[in-house]
Design a protein around this nucleic acid. Structure first.
Length: 559
RNA sequence: CGGGGUGUAGCGCAGUGGUAGCGCGCUUGGCUUGGGACCAAGAGGUCCCGGGUUCAAGUCCCGGCACCCCGACCA
């Protein structure tokens, strides 16, 4: 590509509405442009990056025997009603009506459509296993899109689906995906972790997540530096450091005026939060539960949901009707089912609400039949596997793999006939990768004060020739290189050298080939974007040397 | 949905009820070419939208819309 013909609208100033680095650099580099909240245009260089990510994904999916297909975005409400997700998905699912008033969803994911194909065409164990994938636009009507490409309403996702005749088959398909994903992210040059995760709305048994550790991320993950345990905070578990030694030997009521929060109470009683038992009321179908957790922990509502089901929060009126008082509720003499977290098991005694205004009990002896794990893991909790301290970090989710099982095959009737003649539901898995998140995640990892530093495997160009002299040489080597190297020739006239350097760095092209002042000495210069090296090359060996440098760089991302 | 903020030239922003501004970018001419040069002359406006107050509204009041941030929500 000649720069003089290219459309790369770089911006000198930061866009006012961008917050994180990847968003700013994507906009400044002319990669993307926002059309509406959470909806982006990929401009030509942005689309080149996406295309390169796509090609890597395709090669690795094909390598595990997956077959590419393409499903529509606009999908009839009927199949979503069959699976039950027409209701479950709620407002995140973007719904539209056609001229005949029929309902459709702009698909947030494609399990239902895959299942529709499977139930129509898969009838025998001989038809299995299958892995089908596509790269397609997904729609999720996020309440609050944010962070440029990190959380958007319309996004590109590679989604694949495995169909197997047995659970062992699913294990194999799942493992194949895991290996393919590791290869994909390595070839994209990413530093990533993989995590235990929650399957949420997808249903199913096991799920793992691939993520880039970055403050720009929205997921919180628990990581053990010692043994490598890593999990999304939604499902992370930990051992509780046991430091809640008894302070009181007597059970008695104390006056605690207006101390309705753990913080206020701890300060008032001059005692650590870990000596207080926090009591929270949740309702499931009008049945109240009292959830007890140590004062220095928060409830992980995802975990709680798995135990008691979908819940609502109690109102102040609810708490009064239970015979207690808001801010002073506690387990003593309250007729209600109790869900107590493991964190209170190790307390000798605790401070609890007295169920009357302005009073708490101290010295409450802990004695419950059962304890559950419903707390959110926090920094310095102990690793469940090796006992060392855990740290909490933010992360960008870039891939997620699920063992779905029979959730869709049973609800939608996708059965096959097995060897013994019996009818069995197809065992399914589903596996996603966010292409835009790879793109912005890479930028979050690789950038400096001048702009993006792309890994060569996903860079919009592998090299740029910066022609400062305007003689024929730059154009000559460009013509000789362009068939083998994805190269940009900056042939713009009447533009100062500084602008060319700055654009090249902003866009993040891995190599700059500079035809400038050294040309009179018979040399050109090759600079690495990551600033780790500069090479001087004889002009009569320029083409071969540049080819070699680029090929060597490419090889670093092949595995 | 709650809280906070923004909306004026392509981008970034200033603007005190009284003539619509600055920097960058853009066009033309000149000069320059190793890190976002310089000189000169230009073009470019629904001041987010609608109503109101006023002799007069970018500015004050009311209503709406869009976008951003924090939270809630979602995965």
């Amino acid at each position: 590509m000649r720069y003089s013909n290219a459309f790369i609208p770089t911006l000198r100033e930061e866009p006012q509405d961008a917050e994180n680095i990847s968003h700013k650099l994507l906009v400044r580099g002319g990669f993307i442009k926002q059309l509406s909240s959470g909806i982006f245009i990929f401009l030509p260089v942005g689309w080149k990056v996406i295309s390169k990510i796509y090609r890597i994904i395709k090669e690795e999916m094909d390598r595990i025997g997956a077959q590419e297909l393409f499903m529509p975005s606009l999908t009839p409400s009927q199949i979503w009603k069959e699976s039950g997700r027409w209701e479950e998905y709620g407002d995140d699912m973007l719904r539209v009506k056609d001229r005949k008033n029929r309902e459709y969803a702009l698909s947030p994911t494609h399990e239902e459509i895959i299942t529709e194909i499977a139930r129509k065409h898969i009838h025998s164990y001989k038809d299995l296993p299958q892995i089908w994938y596509q790269v397609q636009t997904k729609f999720r009507d996020e309440l609050r899109p944010r962070g440029g490409l990190l959380r958007v309403r319309e996004f590109l996702m590679k989604d694949s689906y495995s169909l197997d005749e047995s659970w062992e088959g699913l294990d194999r398909s799942y493992e194949l995906h895991k290996q393919a994903y590791i290869r994909i992210f390595k070839r994209c040059g990413l530093k990533f972790v993989h995590l235990r995760a929650s399957s949420g709305l997808m249903g199913g048994s096991l799920s793992e997540e691939f993520a880039i550790i970055s403050d720009a991320g929205e997921d919180e993950v628990a990581i053990c530096e010692n043994c490598g345990y890593s999990a999304n905070l939604e499902v992370a578990i930990s051992k509780v450091p046991n430091y809640a030694i008894s302070k009181y030997d007597e059970f008695k009521k104390v006056y605690t005026p207006d101390k309705t929060t753990v913080e206020e109470l701890a300060e008032f009683l001059k005692i650590g939060k870990e000596h207080i038992i926090k009591s929270l009321v949740y309702y499931v179908n009008n049945k109240p539960y009292l959830v007890l957790i140590r004062g220095d922990y928060e409830v992980n509502e995802e975990k709680l949901r798995k135990i008691i089901g979908n819940f609502q929060y109690a109102t102040d009126e609810d708490i009064l009707s239970l015979g207690s008082y808001p801010g002073f509720i506690g387990p003593h003499n309250l007729n209600i089912e109790i869900i107590s977290d493991e964190s209170i098991k190790h307390m000798d005694d605790g401070i609890i609400g007295a169920n009357e205004k302005d009073y708490h009990y101290i010295g409450y002896k802990i004695n419950f039949d059962r304890y559950y794990d419903i707390r959110k893991v926090k920094e310095k909790d102990l690793c469940p596997e090796c006992g060392k301290e855990i740290s909490i970090k933010r992360a960008i989710e870039i891939g997620h793999i699920f063992k779905l099982g029979t959730r869709y095959s049973i609800s939608m009737g996708a059965y096959f006939q097995d060897k013994d003649g019996s009818l069995k539901p197809i065992i399914m898995g589903s596996y996603g990768i966010g292409l835009g998140r790879i793109m912005s995640g890479a930028i979050e990892i690789y950038n400096d004060e001048n702009g993006i530093i792309w890994p060569i495997s996903i860079a919009p160009f592998e090299a740029v020739i910066i022609d400062i002299l305007g003689n024929n040489f730059a154009s000559e080597i460009y013509e000789k290189l362009r068939n083998e190297v994805d190269i940009l020739l900056d042939d713009r006239k009447d533009i100062s050298a500084g602008v060319k350097f700055n654009d090249a760095d902003l866009i993040g092209i891995p190599f700059k080939i500079i035809v400038g002042k050294k040309f009179n000495e018979g040399k050109i210069e090759v600079q690495r974007r990551d600033k780790t090296a500069v090479y001087e090359v004889n002009i009569n060996q320029a083409v071969d040397t540049i080819k070699k440098i680029i090929l060597d760089e490419r090889r670093k991302f092949e595995i």
